[in-house]
Amino acid sequence: MRRIVKAIEPQTFSDWKAQANDVWQPSYSNLQNPEKRNLHDALLNEQGGLCCYCGRTIALTDSHIEHFRPQERFQELAMDYSNLHASCIRETEPGTPLHCGHSKGKDFDKDKIISPLDDGCEQRFIYSAQDGAIYPTDNSDESATYMIGLLKLDIKFLRDRRAEALKRVFDYDFISSASNDELEKLASAYQQPNAAGFLINFAHVLSRYAEQLIGHQS
């Protein structure tokens, strides 16, 4: 999972909600463009163009506005900006492996969840460069295990893509020679967006893997 730092909601979204009156109340079902597109853009921008859960690169055309706490069960949060993120997969298609926002369904245990807004949420997971697998950092962390299953973060589709990203950076020569100082700088660098405000594909995974290697170097 990724750590998301929320910005201020777009003014057009605030203004639209402020039109509430005795005969009309704003709801997600009646949110339309341009306000909806502006909202989607704002979410993508604050997330550096990456999915809030798996960290893949996303855009308007292949992502959706995600309610972390499902609006079917948490109607009071349906229009709360702090509950809204951008998640990969815009439209589900037969045969497409579901994961991230589209995999949650009704299985949402509020007592086990880890939110992308939680400090330290990224450190509760570790990754394998060999096959891209994701694991709880602490095997006794039931919430981390639950979130991996809830969001289907360990399906082959994502494992293969994480492995590809990790192997591109962390080959044997690099790992065998990198110092802890170099790894710390690398971990920090992957958390920094480029001049356009975007992070690279699976940035948080690359950063976290660098952290995993710190302390194991001579």
Rank of each mutant, 00 (worst) to 15 (best):
D160T: 08
P94I: 12
D80I: 02
E142R: 13
C121K: 06
E76Q: 11
S140P: 00
F125N: 11
I155Y: 00
Q130F: 15
T137G: 07
K112Y: 07
M147N: 10
K156F: 15
D109N: 11
P136N: 09
D80Y: 03
E91R: 09
A165C: 05
N139F: 15
S87N: 09
I126E: 02
D141T: 04
N83H: 04
R124W: 09
T57D: 11
D111G: 08
D107N: 11
K104P: 08
H64R: 08
D109R: 14
K112C: 06
L84D: 07
D141M: 11
K110P: 00
H67S: 00
D109H: 05
Q71C: 00
R161S: 14
H99M: 00
D160I: 00
P136D: 10
E164Q: 14
I65L: 06
R161G: 00
Q123R: 06
H67I: 02
A42Y: 02
I113E: 10
E164W: 04
L117W: 02
C52A: 14
D131N: 15
S128D: 14
D62W: 13
K112S: 07
M79F: 03
D80W: 00
E91H: 12
S103T: 02
P97C: 07
Q123V: 05
L44S: 09
R69I: 01
I89N: 05
I58T: 07
N45K: 15
S63R: 07
P94W: 06
D160R: 09
H40W: 03
T137D: 06
Y135N: 03
P97M: 10
E91K: 14
L158C: 03
C121L: 08
A42Q: 02
K152C: 11
N38P: 01
G149N: 15
H67W: 03
H99C: 12
E66S: 08
C121I: 08
M79N: 12
H102V: 15
S87C: 14
S82F: 13
H64T: 10
R56Q: 13
L151H: 02
L98W: 05
A59R: 14
T61D: 13
P97Q: 10
D80V: 01
R69Y: 14
G149K: 09
I114V: 12
I134N: 03
M79R: 05
R162A: 05
I89K: 05
H99L: 08
L150G: 04
A133L: 13
H40S: 01
L117V: 02
Q123Y: 05
H40F: 07
Y127L: 12
A165R: 02
L60A: 11
H67D: 04
G101W: 06
P94E: 09
F108K: 05
S140I: 10
D111S: 15
Y127A: 13
H64F: 12
L77S: 08
G55V: 07
D41K: 14
L84R: 08
K112M: 15
C100D: 10
L60M: 03
F157A: 04
L150V: 12
H40K: 06
F108A: 06
I148G: 04
S140C: 08
Y127R: 03
C51V: 14
C52N: 03
D109Q: 12
L117N: 11
E164Y: 14
S82P: 05
G105Q: 13
E66I: 00
R56A: 06
L43P: 09
S115T: 06
D160L: 03
S63T: 09
H85C: 11
